[in-house]
Design a protein around this nucleic acid. Structure first.
Lengths: 204, 204
DNA sequence: CAATGTGAACAGCTTCACAGCC
DNA sequence: GGCTGTGAAGCTGTTCACATTG
């Protein structure tokens, strides 16, 4: 395909494709067609073909897409080919749940540090990790951790976000129900579970 | 405004507006302009005006939107004016975190039942509620609960979704990393935390 | 023949610009 | 003057149709 700006929505779907392909890889499936993949993911097949074609021609006409190779390509595109380390801020109930969430490794993501500011939590173990004092987030710079998950109460979210940005964090997944003010160069993705539930009654 | 189909994206933003307005309501602020609200939410002001105008003319030119009345209207639009009950399926770490999540009440949402299939959890208390056997989801029909949050391991998600649909549930918030097959009339919103984190490295 | 890759048509959403009103 | 409400313009993303290839 000639020059094309890649739609943000396409990027948002890439991890979906990667997850599906990673699972197929495990099951040993060699190839998959856009039609089969579309059925699994509840998408339309031309969408998948177009999305993938933005990054090159991975498929074989008459056959489909090679599972391994396509997964490898997507990992490279998303920069998930070398495992990405992320810090988790907040070791409350939500943080604890996330720390034990099994879905990260399939995407090459790795929670590599946990912070909290409650004295009774600092120093305690959570899974493989020791909970650190939130004031130690500055160390993320030298530890080369550029991603963070914010799972603090909302009052703490903005100050924590600022500390993370100061520590060189470039991407934040914000799970608290508030909007964060950060420099434009920092990418923020926010999820508010209550808000997502709040749209459902409209459709009843 | 003349006839217009309401964009799905507009609906997705309404709970955001409602949350912001509910907070302003608490603080006792009487009115707010689209510009101020836009700044708070990191949106553009014409977007907010257009979104609200799909549902009628709530604002006063030269003044802005009346906080109380606009919040009331949005609650009615989203059917959040009478508190909406939701069931939570899965009382693992994620389910437990959600059960104690403070953001629901602000939107008029209420977790009214919790289910799990682990015998050592059934009968235990979680917050105000007693954990029930997953097989009892069928009772949701007579209890008039039409919304559910799925926080089970992914293997259990599809069977649980089917049980929920059979029990008359019309909207599901799916937090497990898999796609659900449900009848078209049932609205599903899926959140996969790992996938959201997975898009961030691309933007580093 | 089965499936990809893609320009072109289409649909949906956002932004603009400004008339209208307090 | 300040701010809403809204048609129209512009933009972004999706779907289609089909030429193309193994």
């Amino acid at each position: 395909m000639k020059y094309h700006k890649i739609p943000e929505e396409t990027i948002r779907r890439m991890p979906m494709y990667l997850r599906a392909l990673s699972l197929l890889e495990r099951q040993g499936q060699q190839t998959i067609s856009s039609g089969q993949l579309a059925q699994q993911l509840h998408l339309k097949s031309p969408q998948i073909r177009k999305d993938l074609s933005y990054f090159g021609a991975f498929g074989t006409r008459g056959i489909g897409y090679p599972v391994n190779e396509t997964a490898r390509q997507i990992r490279a595109i998303l920069r998930l080919d070398t495992p990405q380390k992320a810090a988790l801020v907040g070791a409350g109930r939500l943080g604890t749940a996330i720390a034990s969430y099994p879905g990260f490794s399939l995407l090459g993501l790795d929670i590599a540090a946990i912070f909290d500011n409650a004295p009774n939590k600092i120093g305690k173990r959570l899974g493989q990790l020791i909970i650190e004092d939130t004031r130690a987030v500055q160390s993320l710079k030298e530890r080369n951790i550029r991603l963070a998950i914010l799972a603090t109460p909302s009052e703490a979210a903005q100050p924590c976000a600022e500390a993370l940005v100061k520590a060189g964090v470039k991407g934040i997944l914000n799970l608290s129900p508030c909007t964060l003010n950060v420099p434009r160069k920092v990418k923020v993705v926010s999820i508010d579970i209550a808000m997502e539930l709040g749209i459902l009654p409209y459709y009843l």
